[in-house]
Design a protein around this nucleic acid. Structure first.
Lengths: 146, 146
DNA sequence: AAGATATCGTTAGCTGGGCTAACGATCTTC
DNA sequence: GAAGATCGTTAGCCCAGCTAACGATATCTT
């Protein structure tokens, strides 16, 4: 059947497009001076509120020892800080400092701006079509998790 | 203007979708037993024919010493081999072995299949819409290179 | 209440991948 | 033929991933 073959060709193009998109955007991230794992973890902390180290590790799909090191690095740069839990003293909560907020939002702004800039060259109707495509893509990605 | 704001929101969603898409697909790559840099380099060698180490380093946007190590790793696993150049004996050509071809195409098949599978759950019209979106995305990414 | 068990984060030690600096071998140029 | 450029490698650094093992703390059993 032709539908399956279409899906394969599209899958290939989509995969390639995603790779190239992220490769372009990563260049902007370099300006923050943070490595990708640190940037990603910081993002979760900033937007996801304070979390424990274990939660953060799970969110980043990484093992606890790895997250310990990432957090230690971020802490040394003054972007997050550790806080103990009074009820359960095994827990360590990680929260972003104001500097952490600033660095992250500045980086995100750079990145989004670059992409938004490219997007704004599109016609209004094209923008709508792309928006629809992105929505479908999100659904597809969500369905892959199962 | 509202168009700029729309572009920003879309940029954000697109960025996120691309990240999550690649994260899902990378799980399939793990089955190959190869790390991302090795897989990527192998892919260039397989599809881009024999290249020198320096060319490969540039293609992967990596410095020569890094590529030396990646190639050494691939060579130890029997996926590529080094070949000297008779005319210019400073050069080292890297070419894929048949095992290298097999491993790469098998991995690519797994990856594309997973994505194509998710895509094939879409309605025919949705598939067309997504295809249009991907086409636009490719144009957008291409325009960012400049 | 005490002892066994489970959970959380850290440390130790391994691999791999990124970099710069320095080097040996090899062309190329003068 | 000597000087300079180019190619790949080596050495040595840092970061990020993992597993195994541990100490501290909570929780469960009895």
């Amino acid at each position: 059947m032709t539908k399956g073959r279409d899906a394969e060709a599209l899958a290939d193009q989509l995969h390639s497009a995603a790779i190239h998109l992220l490769r372009q955007l990563r260049k902007e991230d370099d300006a923050s001076g943070l490595s990708a794992p640190r940037l990603s973890a910081l993002s979760v902390v900033v937007f996801g509120g304070p979390l424990t180290l274990g939660e953060l590790a799970r969110a980043e799909q990484v093992k606890p020892p790895t997250m310990t090191r990432i957090v230690t690095g971020l802490e040394k740069e003054g972007l997050v800080k550790r806080k103990g839990d009074l009820r359960d003293r095994r827990l360590t909560h990680i929260e972003a400092t104001s500097k952490g907020h600033k660095v992250l939002t500045a980086g995100r702004a750079r990145r989004v701006k670059k992409l938004a800039n490219a997007l704004s060259r599109l016609e209004k109707t094209e923008l709508a079509e792309l928006r629809r495509g992105v929505q479908l893509l999100r659904d597809v990605v969500a369905s892959m998790r199962g």
